[in-house]
């Protein structure tokens, strides 16, 4: 849009010739991209093909043999995964857990990151670096002390308990990434907003948030994904009873204690991946260029 306005308008003929030439020049680019993506996707393709094969063949032959006659494909593993007791219920439970556990940390981390980026207060350097330091804390060491607090407060086994836990565990990264993003926003924009009498509340919601949509969208995806795929934290704070168990618990229970029946995990993996991928695709349109267009004095 802006870029096009800058270059002189080419004639129709020139434009077509350019496009052809450009297409040819860009051919290697496409080849490289496609090759890289193919290599990257091979493991996933192997899983996808396996998930459509009969269970006994998954353990005894390679997945590519499915493409050699006789084409042995079957929906057996999907049927088995979908018919597992409580799968539907646990899908809903996963949503109940994941949505608030994504929204809460994003919002409060954005407040804090905004303060770290644009407000002056004593001790903020130390505090901010401490937040980064907390990234390295192994979650397993926090489980027992927090569970003791939960028992005293009656939070064990409640959704509120797990929302807060996931929120807290996601905060260090969220604050870190968002502060970095906020501090790259142009300072004079906020200064002039303040001169115009805008409160920090207004500046935050009408300037900082809209301009950081790509950063917030990417964080939202990560947090959503981690909470969605979490198993241990849910088992500790929420328990695995069918009324509250998330999908990871139900899927984990598809194999027996000796690891028998692991083939069904191939199908289950795709079933549980579906929603996160939809979320990713939906949020993709916020990864756009030029949100800051016009705000920088060149």
């Amino acid at each position: 849009m802006k870029s096009r306005a800058l270059s002189p308008a080419p004639s129709e003929r020139e434009r077509r010739g350019n496009r052809l030439l450009q297409g040819l020049r860009r051919f290697p680019l496409h080849i490289i991209i496609v090759a890289l993506v193919l290599i990257w996707s091979t493991p996933t393709v192997g899983l996808l093909v396996s998930s459509f094969r009969p269970a006994h063949l998954v353990t005894t032959t390679g997945w590519w043999t499915a493409f050699i006659p006789p084409w042995n494909f079957s929906l057996e593993l999907y049927e088995q995964a979908l018919s597992a007791a409580g799968m539907g219920q646990s899908f809903i439970n996963s949503l109940f857990i994941t949505i608030p556990a994504t929204v809460i940390p994003l919002m409060i981390a954005a407040f804090a990151a905004y303060a770290f980026a644009w407000m002056r207060f004593p001790g903020r350097e130390i505090l901010f670096v401490a937040v980064i330091g907390l990234l390295v804390v192994p979650l397993q060491t926090t489980l027992i002390p927090v569970l003791r607090i939960y028992n005293n407060l009656g939070l064990t086994g409640t959704f509120v308990g797990i929302w807060l836990a996931h929120s807290a565990y996601g905060l260090p990264l969220a604050v870190y990434l968002l502060r970095n993003f906020f501090s790259t926003l142009p300072r004079d924009m906020f200064e002039s907003a303040a001169l115009d009498g805008a409160s920090p509340f207004t500046a935050f919601f009408s300037l900082a948030l809209p301009l950081s949509v790509p950063a917030i969208a990417s964080l939202a995806i990560f947090q959503f994904m981690w909470v969605w795929n979490d198993l241990l934290i849910a088992l500790i704070y929420l328990g695995g009873e069918p009324s509250v168990a998330p999908m990871t618990v139900t899927i984990g229970n598809l194999t027996n204690s000796l690891g028998g029946g692991w083939q069904v995990l191939t199908a289950a993996a795709f079933i549980s991946m579906l929603l996160p991928l939809v979320v990713f695709f939906t949020l993709q349109r916020y990864f756009v260029r030029g949100l800051l267009a016009g705000s920088v004095k060149g």
């Binding site: 088992l235 009324s243 618990v249």
Partner: peptide, 23 residues
């Protein structure tokens, strides 16, 4: 009977017992 299955029994059981919330 509210059954929870996990192959990480060690971790889950120890944490819940130590945390004061055993099954």
């Amino acid at each position: 009977v509210e059954y929870t299955g996990t192959r990480d029994l060690n971790a889950v059981l120890f944490t819940r017992v130590q945390g004061g919330n055993p099954p």
